[in-house]
């Protein structure tokens, strides 16, 4: 009964990982068909190379933007739309709606939105006078704003997910607690921090884990929005895009590609370790 799962997992996860670890210490010619072993210290060379460091930095910046912002927006909106208001259902539907967009759909929407000459944002005068960079050279074209813009599109696409989770979890917070606290004179802010946040914590940790993992695996947004650019500096080339992106400097060297992929795994493993600890502790308590 285990055989089907074990076969698939072995063939498509265990074996390729092992093989990638082996390939990662090889260097190949321009066509990747003649490779030679280079020793496992090649991993160190890849890790410390300018390109990998730059991709790592981009990935980390992306994470540092998308995770807190995604969390903040998700929780903020969920709390905001949690009150008993007429028509709140409409707002909830609106905030949940981005769940229906895949990475490709969301990115293409943003691509047109942000096009500096004819895009939608470039047609709104007051926004442009506030942020001239939208038109010149464009949010996705300016090395300083490109990565935050990619992050924004990513946060947007993930908003529905976070919102739905937090909203569902908010509904598990007993009203009586709030009521009692309110009677005792606790303000809304106090109640939020003392009641809501602790009870939401498991969900929040979850959201952080998911958003972090997603940020580290960012590929589609970059592929569609910036192609890893803008030049110079390729500030949006994430690790995944560095390994698999179109016309990456290592696109034709299977050795370096495998090496980069394995390093991504190691980094995620490191993060997973932290995550599992958090989770394990969480479930023990829960």
């Amino acid at each position: 009964m285990l055989a089907p799962s074990a076969f698939i997992l072995g063939l498509f996860i265990v074996y390729p990982l092992g093989r990638a670890v082996w390939l990662g210490q090889q260097r190949c010619n321009a066509f990747g068909d003649q490779c030679r072993s280079n020793g496992f210290d090649q991993y160190l060379d890849i890790f410390t190379s300018n390109e990998f460091q730059s991709a790592l930095r981009a990935t980390i910046i992306l994470t540092v933007i998308t995770v807190p912002l995604g969390l903040f927006l998700g929780v903020g909106l969920a709390v905001l739309a949690d009150k008993h208001l007429r028509g709140v259902g409409f707002f909830r539907t609106a905030f949940s709606s981005t769940i229906a967009t895949s990475v490709a759909v969301a990115s293409l929407m943003w691509l047109f939105l942000l096009q500096p000459s004819v895009g939608a944002l470039a047609n709104i005068d007051w926004i442009n006078s506030l942020f001239p960079v939208i038109k010149d050279p464009g949010l996705l074209q300016d090395p300083d704003t490109a990565l935050p813009s990619v992050a924004m599109s990513s946060v947007w696409a993930g908003l529905g997910f976070t919102f739905i989770l937090v909203t569902a979890s908010l509904q598990g917070v007993p009203r009586e607690l709030h009521e009692a606290a309110a009677v005792d004179g606790a303000t809304g802010t106090m109640r939020f921090w003392k009641i809501t946040v602790p009870l939401l914590a498991p969900t929040l940790i979850f959201v952080v884990i998911v958003l972090t993992t997603r940020a580290f695996q960012t590929f589609g947004e970059v592929d569609l929005l910036t192609n890893g650019g803008p030049r110079p500096g390729n500030s949006t080339t994430t690790i995944t895009y560095f390994v698999y992106g179109e016309a990456s400097v290592i696109a034709s060297d299977p050795g370096l590609q495998a090496g980069g992929a394995v390093l991504l795994f190691v980094i995620l493993l490191f993060l997973s370790g932290l995550q599992l600890r958090g989770l394990g502790r969480r479930t023990d308590l829960g």
Binding site: D45, S49, N50, R57
Partner: peptide
């Protein structure tokens, strides 16, 4: 990461 920069190109990997 910042501390490590100033490394070589990835294409020099293994070219010790």
């Amino acid at each position: 990461a910042a501390a490590c920069t100033g490394g070589d190109s990835v294409l020099d990997a293994g070219n010790d």
